[in-house]
Lab assay of single mutants.
Amino acid sequence: KPRTPFTTSQLLALERKFRQKQYLSIAERAEFSSSLNLTETQVKIWFQNRRAKAKR
């Protein structure tokens, strides 16, 4: 499956949310993903990858 090209504004929103909170609840993820026009899976995986990056 092809890589999702996130827009700059989506990335800024994702990073801002990640700084507030590294783990989103299912409800938060649902609301946040629809506000960004992304799927919940895209947001879930982005947060997983971002947490992995933060550990490195």
Rank of each mutant, 00 (worst) to 15 (best):
L24E: 05
Q22N: 11
T39Q: 05
F18I: 02
N37A: 08
R50I: 00
Q22H: 09
A30E: 12
F6E: 04
Q20Y: 07
N49H: 07
W46A: 03
T41Q: 12
F32Q: 08
S35C: 08
Q48H: 12
T39N: 11
T8S: 14
S34C: 08
S25N: 06
F6W: 05
N37Y: 10
I45Q: 13
A52M: 08
P5Y: 12
W46L: 02
P5S: 11
V43P: 02
R19F: 06
L11Q: 11
F18P: 00
Q10I: 05
K17W: 03
K21L: 04
L14M: 06
R50Q: 14
T39I: 03
S9F: 07
Y23P: 02
R3V: 15
R19L: 15
E15K: 05
R56H: 12
F32C: 09
S25H: 08
Q20H: 12
Q10C: 11
R16K: 15
R29I: 14
L11V: 10
K1L: 08
K17F: 07
E31L: 07
L14R: 00
S35D: 05
I26G: 14
F18N: 03
K17Y: 06
R51W: 05
E31G: 02
A52W: 05
R16M: 10
A54K: 06
Q22T: 12
L38D: 02
F6H: 04
R29T: 15
Y23A: 08
L12E: 15
A27K: 03
Q10E: 01
A13D: 07
K55T: 10
W46I: 00
R3P: 12
K1N: 15
F18V: 00
K55N: 14
L24F: 03
R50F: 04
R50A: 14
A52F: 05
S25M: 04
K17E: 04
P5L: 10
R29Y: 15
L14K: 01
R19V: 13
K55S: 13
S34R: 12
L38I: 11
R3W: 04
S35Q: 12
T8V: 10
T41L: 11
F18R: 01
S35H: 11
S33D: 03
T39L: 05
E28V: 01
E31I: 07
E15R: 00
R19T: 15
T39M: 02
R50T: 07
I45H: 12
K44M: 13
A27L: 09
V43E: 03
L12Y: 15
S35G: 09
E31C: 08
Q48M: 07
T39C: 10
Q22R: 06
R50P: 00
R3D: 15
K53L: 14
K1E: 08
E28K: 00
V43I: 12
S34M: 12
L11E: 14
Q22M: 10
S35Y: 08
Q10A: 04
K53A: 14
T4H: 08
F47S: 02
A54I: 10
R50C: 01
A27Q: 11
L11N: 09
S34Q: 12
L14D: 00
K44T: 15
R50L: 04
P5H: 08
R50G: 02
F47R: 03
L24I: 10
E31R: 02
K17R: 10
R3C: 12
K44R: 09
R3M: 14
K55D: 15
R50D: 03
V43H: 01
S33C: 06
K1R: 04
S9G: 12
Q42A: 13
S34W: 07
N49F: 05
Q42I: 06
K44V: 11
S34F: 08
K21P: 01
I26M: 13
A13T: 09
F6T: 01
Q20W: 04
T7M: 00
A54C: 09
K1Q: 02
K55C: 12
L14I: 00
S34P: 11
K53P: 05
T8C: 04
R3Y: 14
K17A: 07
Q48K: 04
N37I: 02
P5N: 11
K55R: 09
T8N: 12
E40W: 01
T4R: 03
F18W: 07
N37S: 10
R56A: 13
Q22C: 08
K44G: 10
R16T: 14
S35A: 09
L14G: 00
K1V: 07
K1G: 09
A13V: 06
F32K: 04
K55H: 10
W46D: 06
N37W: 01
I45W: 07
K55E: 12
S34A: 14
R19K: 14
E15S: 00
K53E: 15
T8M: 14
L36A: 09
I45M: 07
S9E: 10
T8Q: 05
A54V: 07
V43S: 02
E31W: 14
R16H: 14
S35E: 08
K17G: 03
F6S: 01
R3S: 15
N37T: 06
L11I: 09
F47M: 04
Y23V: 11
Q10S: 02
L24A: 00
T7F: 02
S34G: 10
T4I: 13
L14H: 15
T7P: 02
A30F: 09
F18Y: 15
I45G: 06
T39A: 07
S25A: 09
R51K: 06
R51F: 03
R16Y: 10
S35T: 07
R51S: 07
R29W: 11
L38P: 00
K21D: 09
A27P: 11
F47T: 03
R56D: 10
K17M: 12
K53W: 05
S34K: 08
Q42N: 08
R16S: 14
S9T: 10
R51V: 09
L11A: 11
N49C: 08
I45L: 13
I45P: 00
F6D: 06
L24V: 05
T7A: 04
I26Q: 08
R3H: 11
T8P: 10
K1W: 02
N37L: 08
F18M: 01
E31K: 05
E15Q: 03
A30N: 12
K1Y: 08
A13Q: 12
E15I: 00
S9M: 15
F47N: 02
F47E: 05
E28N: 00
T4V: 07
I26C: 12
K21Y: 04
E40R: 03
Q20C: 07
I26F: 14
I26A: 11
Q10T: 08
Q22A: 12
A30G: 11
Q22W: 07
E40K: 00
W46E: 03
S9H: 15
N37E: 07
P2S: 09
F18T: 03
K55F: 09
T4E: 10
L38C: 07
S33M: 01
R19C: 15
R16C: 12
A27D: 13
R19N: 14
A27N: 08
K44P: 01
K1A: 04
R16Q: 10
N49G: 07
L14W: 02
F6I: 04
F32G: 00
T4F: 11
F47V: 01
N49K: 04
E15L: 00
K44S: 12
T41E: 15
A27C: 11
F6C: 02
W46Y: 06
Q42H: 14
R51M: 14
T4S: 10
S9W: 09
F47C: 02
Y23R: 09
K1I: 15
K21V: 13
A54N: 12
E15H: 00
L11T: 07
Q48E: 15
S34N: 08
Y23M: 12
Q10D: 12
N49V: 10
R29L: 15
R50H: 07
Q42E: 14
P2I: 06
R16V: 14
I26T: 14
R56N: 15
K21I: 08
R50N: 03
A30C: 08
T8Y: 04
E28C: 01
E31Y: 03
P5T: 13
Q48R: 05
L11K: 04
Q42S: 08
